[in-house]
Amino acid sequence: MKVKGNALPFLWVRGLVAAAATWKALLLALALNAALALVVTAPLASRLHDLLDDRPTADGLAKGWDVVLGAHLLRSEPGLLGDRARLGEIEQGTLPLAEWPRLSGPLAGLLAAGFLHAALSALLAGGFAGRFAAERERGSLAAFFSDVVRLGLPSLFIGLVGLAAILGAFLLFVELPREATLSPDLRWDWERTGLSLLRLFAFLGAAGAIRAVVAQSRAALGLAKTANPVLALASGVGFVLGRPVKALFLEAAFGVTALFPLALWLVFAPSWSGGDWRLLALLVSGQQAVVLLRLFARTAHLGAAMAWMRGAREASRPAPAKIEA
């Protein structure tokens, strides 16, 4: 199926179509995600079995979180989720960025796994970029792995630059102005809320722009003859700077696409209380579908970025000279 045109809806559809062709690689990404989640939660899950299996008084937690029982659980096992004080700061949103590497316990494990997952995703993104740029064998896993080997490291480099930029944006827009926007000297509550939301939206805008640059840089990487990440990054920055609004809208469109299934799940999915195995099978399938759709949307954004960049290049190429008969 070929969809043409560079209008936003067309790009969105083209991205989805491109991503769908790489379904085998997407399943691989899902497997990686699930395996990492399994590994990172295994110690905590095992500790919960130690703590709760013998205790009928914990039955109140079966259906979901219970504020009082949860407080008893965390008091009886203060290190269950890591340092309690830091946990409180995370809950309040006041833990400084510099303190995150000093987390301990399951939260530290999650943080480490998060970075590993991000790095693996960046390597795989190289593979996706290669496949989207190719005219044939888009669904071939062998070709995908060959692209991972060829473009994975440059893609990781682009990702690291993106990460540094996003952390910088977080520091600039979220952390540094925090005190000022929450100041008790502000006269009205709406000033405080408004400034806080402004802080959030400024960060989201900056992060969206950075992610758009990362996407277009990877697209440039896939389209280029050499795997030079610096050149690709320069292309990505130039491309986004030339079309900032559309790039942000594209980013937002795929953001909504990724979030929508998760939101539906959180609102409508039933909770498993540990007994009914058929319900578990159903829920696990549904959950994996949700995560797969998120991965799909993320990959589709790259596909759309690639289609957009290719279309733009074709449009700017000079028309071939007329051949006189």
Partner: peptide, 11 residues
Amino acid sequence: FALVAVLPGAS
């Protein structure tokens, strides 16, 4: 993490 740190998309 993958979204924030490396890849595009938004959540």
